[in-house]
C-alpha cells in the first residue's frame, strides 16, 4: 500500500495512521493481552485489585475503563493533528 508522504495531506494521513496504530496496540494489550492471553499469569503474579485477581478484574472491569480512556485520548490527539495540519472544520460541513 503506497501512500504519498510529501504532501500535507499525505503527512496528515501518516500521522493519523500512527495515532490509530498506537491506540490499537494499547487496545489489544489491555483486552486480549491482560484479559485473555496473559490472564492466568497475571492472576498469580500481579497485585490484586481490591480483592479481585488482576487478570480477572481486567477482563470484567479494567478493559472497559481503558477503552473509554482510549477514546478520550483519540479525540484529543486528532484534535491536535487537525489544528497542526490546518484541516479544521468550519461550522457545518
Amino acid at each position: 500500500m503506497m501512500e504519498e508522504t510529501n504532501t500535507a495531506r499525505g503527512r496528515y494521513w501518516q500521522a493519523n495512521l500512527k495515532c490509530v496504530g498506537v491506540l490499537l496496540s494499547i487496545w489489544f494489550f489491555v483486552s486480549y493481552g491482560c484479559g485473555i492471553l496473559l490472564r492466568d499469569w497475571l492472576d498469580v503474579n500481579f497485585p490484586k485489585i481490591g480483592t479481585a485477581p488482576f487478570g480477572f478484574w481486567m477482563a470484567q472491569q479494567g478493559a472497559i475503563i481503558c477503552f473509554v480512556l482510549l477514546l478520550i485520548s483519540y479525540a484529543f490527539w486528532m484534535k491536535k493533528l487537525d489544528a497542526q495540519f490546518e484541516v479544521d472544520e468550519e461550522e457545518g460541513r
Partner: peptide, 9 residues
C-alpha cells in the same frame, strides 16, 4: 463485556 465495548474503539 469486552466484545461489546471494545468494538466501539
Amino acid at each position: 463485556l469486552m466484545g461489546w465495548t471494545g468494538g466501539f474503539v
